[in-house]
């Protein structure tokens, strides 16, 4: 009931949605992360994502397993990109299905919030005049 992928090719929201679709589902909630053109007023040219794939897959699976137990959802799909992403591109897609909508909303938020805290994936912002690994320094 869990689909976890790290891909260096464009993500498909439809693929995640199709994975979680189920006859017992009354709701599907999707989170789609997109590359914003500015951060704290500074123009971003592109982002670069790097992963420790073996560990990132394990950590994403733990999140999905916990979401299923905590929120009694049916299916979870979490896909994350690596490589160079331009403005508007999709670094992450999370889809969750459940019998009733509240569980899917809560579980989807839990999955993205926890992913940002625990999954070994790193984002570098590239600006006109330099680049920075996000969250690395105070």
């Amino acid at each position: 009931m869990i689909d976890i992928q790290i891909l260096d090719t464009p993500l498909s929201v439809e693929q995640c949605r199709n994975y979680v679709a189920a006859d017992d589902a009354g709701a599907i909630v999707e989170f789609i992360g997109t590359v914003r053109r500015q951060t704290q007023g500074k123009a971003v040219i592109r982002l670069e994502f790097e992963a420790y794939p073996a560990m990132a897959l394990l950590e994403m699976r733990k999140i999905a397993e916990e979401a299923i137990v905590r929120f009694s959802i049916l299916r979870v799909s979490m896909h994350h990109r690596t490589g160079i992403l331009e403005i508007g591109a999709i670094p992450v897609v999370i889809a969750v299905s459940s019998a009733h909508r509240a569980a899917a909303f809560e579980a989807c938020q839990f999955c993205i919030d926890t992913l940002k805290q625990t999954v070994p994936i790193w984002k570098k912002e590239i600006f006109e005049d330099g680049e920075v690994w996000v969250a690395a320094h105070p």
Binding site: G33, A51, M55, A56, P91, V92, P120, I121, W122, V134
Partner: peptide
Amino acid sequence: EIALIPPVSGG
């Protein structure tokens, strides 16, 4: 297999 994990910033 040992790895150093700096602050993560996925998503």
